[in-house]
Simulated scan of single mutants.
Amino acid sequence: MELAATVLRWGFFGVGSALLIAFILTAARQRRAGASFGELAELMEHEWFSAGKVFFTVLTGLAGSWSAAYLGGTRSGLQEAVPILFPLGIVAAFVVCSLTKSDGSNSLRIEALVLLAAPLPIGAVMTGW
């Protein structure tokens, strides 16, 4: 289980870092083209990752971590678990924004799966066991 947790941590850290760098580069290009800060905030919320979705995913992963501790794993403190789960939140919010911006037909199903169903077990593995 430790190997799976390590792979998940580094995988989400790598993808989350790449997403943040890509967003920063896009925001810098948009800013040079004359976009205002409000337009950049709207770009982040709708095209890249919503801050509320990141926060919700981190909380859901934390609930998974604590449920794993309840079932026999080890409970991580907030100071340890949140930095581990933050890249998971960025990746999950990006996936939701990417999948729901084209059509809104399955948006609730996608949001429930990516923001609720997936972070519970992933958070349990990444920080609870």
Rank of each mutant, 00 (worst) to 15 (best):
A4W: 05
A4G: 02
A4N: 06
A5D: 00
A5S: 14
L8S: 08
L8K: 01
W10E: 00
F13G: 07
F13K: 05
G14W: 08
G14S: 13
G14L: 12
G16I: 06
G16M: 08
G16P: 02
S17V: 11
A18W: 03
I21N: 05
I21Q: 01
I21D: 03
F23S: 06
I24V: 14
L25T: 08
L25K: 06
A27I: 11
A27M: 09
A28F: 07
A28T: 12
R31Y: 12
R32E: 11
A33G: 08
A33V: 03
S36D: 13
F37W: 10
G38D: 09
L40T: 01
A41I: 09
E42T: 13
M44N: 09
H46A: 08
H46W: 10
E47G: 07
W48N: 00
W48E: 02
F49H: 10
S50Y: 06
S50P: 02
K53H: 12
K53M: 13
F55H: 11
T57F: 04
V58I: 15
L59M: 14
L59R: 01
L62V: 12
A63E: 03
A63L: 14
G64W: 11
A68I: 12
A68E: 08
A69E: 04
Y70F: 14
L71F: 15
L71R: 10
G72T: 10
G73D: 10
T74N: 10
R75D: 02
S76M: 13
G77H: 05
G77C: 08
G77S: 13
E80I: 15
E80V: 15
E80D: 13
A81M: 04
P83H: 10
I84P: 01
P87M: 05
P87T: 10
P87D: 04
L88A: 03
L88V: 08
I90G: 04
A93V: 09
A93F: 09
F94W: 12
F94R: 06
V95F: 09
V96A: 06
C97Q: 13
S98E: 10
S98V: 10
L99D: 03
L99K: 05
K101F: 07
K101I: 07
K101H: 09
G104I: 03
G104P: 02
G104H: 02
N106L: 14
L108D: 09
L108H: 00
R109K: 11
R109F: 11
I110R: 04
I110V: 15
I110Y: 09
E111I: 05
A112G: 14
L113I: 15
L115N: 08
L115Q: 05
L116D: 00
L116T: 15
L116G: 13
A118P: 00
L120H: 01
A124N: 01
A124W: 02
A124P: 01
V125W: 03
V125M: 06
T127V: 14
T127H: 00
G128P: 02
G128Y: 03
W129F: 11
